[in-house]
Computed example of a mutant assay.
Amino acid sequence: MNLKKKLAMSIATGALAVSMIGGGTYAYFNDVETTNNTFAAGTLDLAVNPSVIIDVDNLKPGDWMPRTFDLINDGTLDISKVFITTDYSYDGTDEDFGKHIKVNFLRNEDKSGILLPSNVIISKTLYELKNMSPDAVKNLSHSIFAEKSGLKAGTKDKLAVQFEFVDNGQEQNDLQGASLQLEWTFDAQQTDGQKR
C-alpha cells in the first residue's frame, strides 16, 4: 500500500472513531412534567335599583322630590369609583329647563359619618352637572365610622337624592307644559391591579 492510501485509510478510520464517540455523548436521563395553568378575568357588574329614579308630572316652581336608590356591585371585582354623568333633553320651552331643576343633595348613606354626611352633589342644577362627573362611592366625610371609598363585590350603597323645581321668585310662565328627560349614567371603575 502506498503512503497516500495508508494516509486516507487512517483519516477514514479516525473519522469513524470520532463519530462513534460523539454519537455516544448524546445519551442522558430525562424526566418531563407538564403544568396546567388558568387565567380567568373577573367581572365588573354595576346595577341601579330602581332603574327609574324619578318620574313625576304636574310640577310647579318650589316643588321638591326626595328619592332613594341603590348602587349594587353584582360583579366579582371590587369597584373603586362610580362616576355620575348627567345628560338631559327638554321639550315645550325655549328656556333650558335644566337650569331650573336643582339637585339639592345626592348623599351616599353608607359613606356618611355620624356628624358629616357624604354629599356627592350639593346644590347644583342639572345644567351645572352636565360639566361634572362626581364619584358616587367616595367617602367624602372622612369619618372613621363610615365605609371606605369604593364598592366591594357583592355589596350595595344606598343613595338619597333631592330634586327641586327652583322657584326663582320671577315669572316662570314660559316653563308651563315643559318636560325634561334626565339621563344619569353610572360608570364603574375597577380597583388598581395588585400582586396575585
Rank of each mutant, 00 (worst) to 15 (best):
V120H: 03
K124D: 08
Q172Y: 11
I144L: 13
V166P: 04
K195M: 09
T76H: 07
A17W: 05
A178D: 03
E109W: 05
T93A: 15
H142W: 09
V103R: 03
Q189P: 02
S118Q: 04
T185N: 11
L126W: 08
N30K: 12
K152V: 10
N30I: 08
L44P: 03
W184E: 00
D187W: 06
E109Q: 14
D70M: 11
E183P: 00
E128V: 04
R196S: 14
E109S: 09
G177Q: 01
K5T: 14
T185G: 06
Q181I: 12
Y26E: 03
S10K: 11
T185W: 02
T43D: 08
M1Q: 07
G169Q: 01
N30R: 12
S123P: 01
L106Q: 08
N119Y: 09
I114A: 15
P134K: 00
R67Y: 08
I144W: 09
Q162M: 13
S133H: 10
Q176M: 09
T34M: 09
L151R: 02
K138N: 12
N173K: 14
Q170K: 15
Q190M: 09
T76Y: 05
N30T: 13
P50H: 01
D78V: 07
R67C: 09
A41T: 09
I114M: 12
L44Q: 06
V52S: 03
L175F: 04
F39I: 15
G154E: 08
I114T: 15
N36L: 11
K156Y: 10
Q172P: 04
K156A: 12
D74M: 04
A160E: 13
D96L: 07
K5L: 10
L140R: 13
A12M: 09
T13F: 14
H100I: 03
D63L: 05
V161H: 02
N2S: 13
K138Y: 12
I144V: 08
T35M: 08
D63R: 00
K99W: 03
D78M: 04
